[in-house]
Design a protein around this nucleic acid. Structure first.
Lengths: 366, 366
DNA sequence: ACGCTAATGGAAACCGTTGTCAGATTCACC
DNA sequence: GGTGAATCTGACAACGGTTTCCATTAGCGT
C-alpha cells in the first residue's frame, strides 16, 4: 500500500481537530490521556488521524512545551572512529545505551569533529542531559556542555566541581600491573600509550609531555606507573614511553617495533590499552620473539579478545561504567550533592607475562 | 568559578532582549546572523548573555521553528547488546556516525526495547530522518518509523517500496563461501546461524522455520546456502542447521558442541557470522579437533579479530554500509527515485578451511 | 422539578525561537 | 540641506503542541 505522498503539507493536530470539528485539546488528549475522553470519540480521532495520514503529535513541539527532550547527549570528541574501534569504549557506549533503554530515553551522539571547533553542535542538541566521555581536559566542546543548563555526568575525566563523575580507580589499577611486573623481576620495561594531547605525536614522549598530558586517563596511568616503578628502584626517567595518536592494533605494532628497535634490552612492554597490546603481540611474533618467554606484554581494559588470547591485563567494568553514568544522569532529579563513583578493577594474569628472559642465568641453558 | 545556580528560572532570548533594551530579533541575529548587526552591539549582546547565564537559543525551540532537528534516528531493535557486541554491527554504527559527523548532524539512538512494544519512543524522537538496521521484518517499531513523515533508509532489510536501501549482496556472498567449501570437497556440513525470529529457539531449525525467518539477512543466507549445496548434489534437508538467540562467542561454542555431538561426521561448520565462528573454533579446540585438518570452520562478515586469527570468511564493507546509509539519508533532499545500493563482498580464505579430513583416502596416511 | 456531582470537551495562555517586512537611523554626496 | 543608499531595528505572525482552568451536559437521588 505504498507510502503516503509527502508533497502536500503535513496534517497537524490543529487541522485534524478542525476536520473532526473538535478542539485541539481533545485530539491531544486522545493521544496522551485516553481517560480524559470517551472511548468512542477517541476511536474516531485515531481513525481520522489514520485517514489523514497524521503521524501523531510532533515530537519537537511536544518537547518544547513539556520541557523534556526525551534524550541524553553523549559527547565523545577526538576521532569518532577511536570510540568505535576500541571495545572498551564500545562497552561504555553499550552500558550507557542500556541505561537509556531502561528509562525509555534516546541516546544522542553529538557530532564533535576534532578539527573544526564546531561547538555549535553541542548547542543544537535537544537533550535533557549530557554524558561526557574521554575528551581532553581543555576541549571546547566540554566547556560548551558545561554551559548548557542541564545535568551532566563525566566519565574517565578529572573531576569538575559540582559535576557527577564515574571512573575506575586508575592509579590503583596501574599499581596492580606494575606490582605484578616488578614482582616477576622486570626492571627494563617500555611503555606504549595512547595519545596524550590533541596534537599528533607518534614518537617517544618527553617527561614534560607526560605530565602535561591533556587526556586524564593516560596521564594518570603514566603517573601511577612512574610511582610504582620508582618505588621498585627503577629510574623512571630512563624508561622509554612511546605514544601513538591513533588507537589501532597496527599502531600498537608499529609502536612496539619502534620501541624494541631502540631498546632491544627491554623485557616487558606495558601497553595502556589492550588494543595496543594486541599490536605489540603481533610485532613480537613478527620478529620471532616468544611471548612470554622472550618478552612480556601487558594490556589494559580487559576486552573480550584479550581474554580469549590470554593477555595479562587489568580488567575494568566498562559496561558498568556506562550504565552507572546513565543511571546517575537519569536519576539526578532532586539530588543535591554531586556524586562520584569509583569502579573496581581487577588484575587478570594471562599467558603473556612471565619472569624476564635470563641473559645469564647459570643453571639453565638458553 | 563553579557552575551557575539553576534554581532560578533560566534566561530566555526574550528576557535577554528586555535586559538589553533591544528586540528579540536583534538578540537572535547576534547568534545566527552576525552580519545583520553592528559588531559593537553584538559584542554587548553576547557579553550580557554571559553575565545572565543565557546559554544561547534553546535548541528545541529553534528546531520547532526551523523545522530541522539536526539529528537522524537509528533504529536497531532486538537486544541492544547484540548491536554493540558484534563488531560488524559496530562497524555499521561507526560508518553512520562518521557520515553524521561530516554533515554536523547528531545520531539519535532510539530506545526500542524488544520486550514491551514501546513504539512511543519512535514517535518521541525529534529527528530529521531514520536509519533502520537489522530489525525483524514484522517489527512494530519499523512500522512506526514508516509512519513518520521523514526520509528513511534501511540497511540489511528486505526492500520496501519507496524506501532507500543499502545492503550487501548476501546471496552472492554466501555463494562464494559455499563454492569454496564444495570445491574443497566438503559434503557433510553443518550450519550455525543467528536468531531467525523474535521467539527464542536455541536448537536445531526446521525447514519451515528456515524459510519463514523474520530476519532478512539470516533467511537470505540460509536460502543461498541451500541453493549452492543443492546444486553440488547435497541434500539440504539433511544438513543440520542450528540456531542461537544470543549472538556471542559462547553461544557459538555451545552451538558447535550441540552440532558436533549430534553429527560427528561433519567436516565443515559454516557459521553465519564471525562471532559464532570464533565460538566454534573454541569448541573445536576444546574437543581436541585441529582446525583446519580435522574440521573446517568458516565465518561471515570479516571482522578484524577474524582477520587476525586467519578465519576463512566473507568480508563485507560494514563501515561503508553505515556511511552510505548516512549519505543517502542526509543527501536525500530533492531526490525523487528511491535508491538501492548493493555493496560488494569478498571471500577471504584464511587458515581455517581445508579439504575434509580423509577417512579413507588410500594414498596418504592419517 | 431541583440541585449536586461526575464526566466530557473547549478556550486560551504558553513553550522559546525565527523570519519577514516595513520603518527608523545614519551617512555620504551633490 | 535634501536625497538616496546603506544599515539596523522592531512588530508580528508563525512553528505544533500541552495544560490549566472553565463551561457544558448528563446522571441521579430526593
Amino acid at each position: 500500500m505504498g507510502r503516503p505522498i509527502r508533497t502536500r503539507r503535513q496534517a497537524t493536530l490543529a487541522s485534524l481537530a478542525a476536520e473532526l470539528g473538535v478542539s485541539r485539546t481533545t485530539v491531544s488528549n486522545a493521544y496522551n490521556r485516553p481517560d480524559q475522553l470517551s472511548p468512542e470519540l477517541r476511536r474516531r480521532v485515531l481513525e481520522t488521524a489514520r485517514r489523514l495520514g497524521y503521524p501523531g503529535p510532533d515530537p519537537v513541539a511536544r518537547s518544547l512545551r513539556t520541557r523534556r527532550a526525551g534524550a541524553v547527549g553523549l559527547l565523545l570528541t577526538e576521532n569518532l572512529s577511536y570510540a568505535f574501534r576500541d571495545p572498551a569504549a564500545v562497552g561504555v557506549l553499550e552500558g550507557l545505551a542500556l541505561a537509556c533503554e531502561d528509562a525509555s530515553v534516546g541516546l544522542h551522539l553529538v557530532p564533535a569533529s576534532p578539527g573544526r571547533e564546531d561547538v555549535a553542535a553541542v548547542h543544537r542538541a535537544g537533550v535533557d542531559g549530557f554524558v561526557v566521555y574521554s575528551v581532553p581536559d581543555d576541549d571546547p566542546h566540554l566547556a560548551a556542555v558545561l554551559e548548557r543548563p542541564v545535568p551532566t555526568v563525566i566519565i574517565d575525566q578529572p573531576s569538575i566541581e559540582g559535576i557527577d563523575r564515574v571512573g575506575p580507580d586508575d592509579a590503583a589499577a596501574v599499581g596492580k600491573i606494575a606490582g605484578h611486573l616488578v614482582g616477576l623481576g622486570h626492571r627494563q620495561v617500555g611503555v606504549i600509550c595512547m595519545r596524550l594531547a590533541r596534537e599528533r605525536n607518534d614518537d617517544f614522549v618527553s617527561p614534560a609531555r607526560q605530565s602535561g598530558a591533556h587526556f586524564h586517563v593516560q596521564r594518570t596511568r603514566l603517573e601511577a606507573l612512574a610511582v610504582a616503578f620508582s618505588a621498585a628502584g627503577v629510574d623512571w626517567a630512563g624508561v622509554p614511553v612511546i605514544e601513538r595518536f591513533d588507537h589501532t592494533v597496527d599502531d600498537g605494532a608499529s609502536a612496539a617495533r619502534q620501541l624494541l628497535d631502540a631498546y632491544p634490552q627491554i623485557t616487558a612492554v606495558i601497553c595502556t590499552s589492550d588494543i595496543l597490546a594486541l599490536g605489540a603481540m603481533a610485532e613480537a611474533e613478527r620478529r620471532g620473539l616468544r611471548v612470554p618467554q622472550d618478552l612480556t606484554v601487558t594490556g589494559f581494559d580487559g576486552i573480550a579478545e584479550a581474554e580469549r588470547i590470554g593477555l595479562t591485563t587489568v580488567h575494568q567494568p566498562v559496561l558498568e561504567k556506562g550504565k552507572m553514568a546513565g543511571r546517575l544522569l537519569l536519576g539526578s532529579a532532586e539530588r543535591s550533592a554531586p556524586k562520584v563513583i569509583t569502579l573496581p578493577t581487577e588484575l587478570r594474569v594471562g599467558r603473556t607475562s612471565a619472569p624476564p628472559r635470563t641473559v645469564e642465568e647459570p643453571w639453565f641453558g638458553g
